[in-house]
């Protein structure tokens, strides 16, 4: 029976592994950590319908049960190719031989320290969207690091995205809708809070997204201001002072808030680049892996027997990632059955 390696145990890897096991292949998931679910594991509720994230992860885990072999705490150190066989040297010292590889290494969140002017890790009340999710584990009002109830909060879009200075020209796609989702979740916990979203463009690209945006405006009174944050500073009372331009009015704008949430974008994971080099797969200007083409062969890499799915080939929502994973599984099936 052909053996397939799925590198990365996030939602993409879990789905592709499950689908390949359904097609009667022997599948190994090579996961560097000791848990499955990747970034989604850390998320509470998902846009646009507030589905609990654990439901998706649990469902994917249940599908996998006993069908797939998971090599936790493992990374690919070296890769070699012999005819149609791929030999992977793993960090646990073993060597595995596979007939096909699916790369599902996903993404990493932008390191907000790189936007020095935003003062992340300098001002305690500047946090990332991922850190805000931790507040949503319960229904308590959102508080500052000094235990004050948040009365004013600013969400900053495009942190580490659409920013050539930090080397990321690309749009991370999901942050706009995530900000709208998180703003509503804050409004539900702090009904009297003034909530501002500072955006460059609102990219409500998928079904129900525009509805959620309208709901944020009308039901929750969330304020959308077009303009990119230029600088955060801290006042004597530890509240945060923001400088931006209201680009629709064409005037500089200043305001003081209790909490700043940086909508950190997606970057290719460091091990994705190493893996791409080891496996001879080209990456784009954005450092994400390049499939043969982005329309009809989006899971096929230039290297025979190696496939890609999920955010390893660019930012995607969970729905898109799962669809991409299924499509990759079918590509692997076709490839192995034609050989």
């Amino acid at each position: 029976m052909p053996r397939i390696a799925v590198i990365g145990g996030g939602v993409a890897g879990m789905e592709v592994a499950f689908r390949l096991s359904q097609l009667s292949f022997e599948v190994d998931i090579i996961e560097k950590s000791f848990i499955l679910g990747g970034h989604v594991h850390k998320w509470q509720k998902l846009f646009p319908d507030f589905t609990p994230a654990h439901q998706i992860v649990d469902q994917l885990k249940n599908q996998l049960r006993d069908k797939v072999n998971i090599l936790f705490g493992n990374e690919v150190i070296k890769a070699e190719q012999e005819n149609t066989k791929h030999i992977l040297y793993l960090s646990d010292g073993t060597t595995q031989v596979y007939d096909a590889i699916v790369i599902t290494t996903g993404f990493k969140l932008f390191n907000a320290n790189r936007k020095e002017e935003y003062g992340y890790s300098v001002y305690p009340n500047v946090i990332t969207s991922s850190e805000l999710e931790e507040y949503f584990q319960n229904d308590k009002p959102i508080i500052t690091k000094e235990n004050r109830i948040v009365e004013r909060i600013a969400f900053i879009h495009c942190v580490g995205s659409r920013d050539e200075k930090v080397g990321n020209r690309h749009c991370s796609k999901v942050c706009c809708i995530t900000a709208v989702k998180q703003a509503i979740e804050v409004a539900q916990r702090n009904p009297d809070a003034e909530i501002y979203l500072f955006y460059m463009d609102l990219r409500m690209f998928d079904r129900k997204f525009e509805d959620l945006y309208l709901q944020a405006q009308t039901e929750y009174g969330i304020k959308f201001v077009r303009g990119r944050l230029s600088e955060v500073s801290e006042k004597a009372d530890s509240r945060l002072f923001l400088k931006l331009e209201d680009t629709l009015l064409g005037k500089p704008l200043r305001l003081t808030v209790d909490l700043v949430v940086l909508m950190v974008g997606m970057e290719t994971a460091e091990n994705s680049i190493q893996l791409a080099n080891a496996l001879g797969i080209p990456v784009g200007q954005d450092n994400f892996m390049l499939p043969v083409n982005c329309h009809s062969q989006k899971n096929i890499t230039g290297n025979r027997g190696i496939f890609v799915a999920g955010c390893a080939s660019g930012p995607k929502s969970i729905g898109e990632t799962l669809a991409d994973a299924r499509s990759a599984a079918l590509e692997v099936y076709s490839y192995l059955n034609c050989n």
Binding site: N113, E116, G119, S121, V122, Y123, P124, E234
Partner: peptide, 10 residues
């Protein structure tokens, strides 16, 4: 104000 963040920048 956390100096750790500044040290990272410095």
């Amino acid at each position: 104000m956390k100096n750790r963040g500044k040290q990272l920048i410095w």
